Amino acid sequence: MKIGVPKEIKNREYRVGLTPAAVHELCGHKHKVLVETGAGVAIGFSDEDYRQAGAHIVESPREVFELAELIVKVKEPQSEERAMLKPEHTLFTYLHLAPDKPQTDDLVRSGATCIAYETVTDRTGHLPLLAPMSEVAGRMAIQAGAHCLEKVMGGRGVLLGGVPGVPPSRVTVVGGGVVGQNAIAMAIGMGAQVTVLDRNMDVLRELDHRYGNRLTTLFSTTQTLDQAVTESDLVIGSVLIPGASAPKLITRDMIRRMPEGSVIVDVAIDQGGCAETSRATTHDDPTFIVDGVVHYCVANMPGAVARTSTLALNNVTLPYVVALANKGADRAMKEDPHLKAGLNVAAGKVTYREVADATGHPYTDPESLLGS
Score class of each variant (00 low, 15 high):
residue 78 Q to C: 13
residue 127 L to E: 03
residue 137 A to R: 03
residue 78 Q to M: 14
residue 142 I to K: 05
residue 65 F to A: 13
residue 109 R to V: 13
residue 65 F to D: 12
residue 104 T to M: 07
residue 144 A to Y: 01
residue 100 D to P: 13
residue 98 A to V: 02
residue 68 A to W: 00
residue 124 T to M: 00
residue 126 H to C: 00
residue 77 P to S: 14
residue 79 S to M: 05
residue 137 A to W: 01
residue 126 H to S: 13
residue 79 S to I: 06
residue 99 P to N: 12
residue 137 A to T: 14
residue 71 I to K: 05
residue 80 E to K: 12
residue 100 D to E: 14
residue 82 R to V: 11
residue 86 K to G: 07
residue 103 Q to D: 11
residue 79 S to L: 06
residue 88 E to F: 03
residue 138 G to H: 01
residue 71 I to Q: 08
residue 135 E to V: 15
residue 82 R to T: 15
residue 124 T to K: 04
residue 85 L to N: 07
residue 134 S to D: 06
residue 128 P to V: 02
residue 81 E to V: 04
residue 102 P to Y: 03
residue 110 S to R: 07
residue 93 T to Q: 04
residue 106 D to V: 01
residue 85 L to R: 04
residue 124 T to V: 00
residue 76 E to V: 09
residue 111 G to K: 07
residue 117 Y to T: 09
residue 120 V to Y: 07
residue 141 A to S: 15
residue 118 E to K: 07
residue 133 M to F: 01
residue 84 M to W: 04
residue 122 D to V: 07
residue 145 G to P: 10
residue 141 A to W: 01
residue 114 C to A: 13
residue 132 P to T: 06
residue 113 T to P: 03
residue 135 E to K: 13
residue 102 P to E: 09
residue 70 L to A: 08
residue 118 E to D: 14
residue 77 P to F: 07
residue 124 T to L: 03
residue 86 K to H: 10
residue 128 P to R: 00
residue 64 V to F: 05
residue 102 P to S: 09
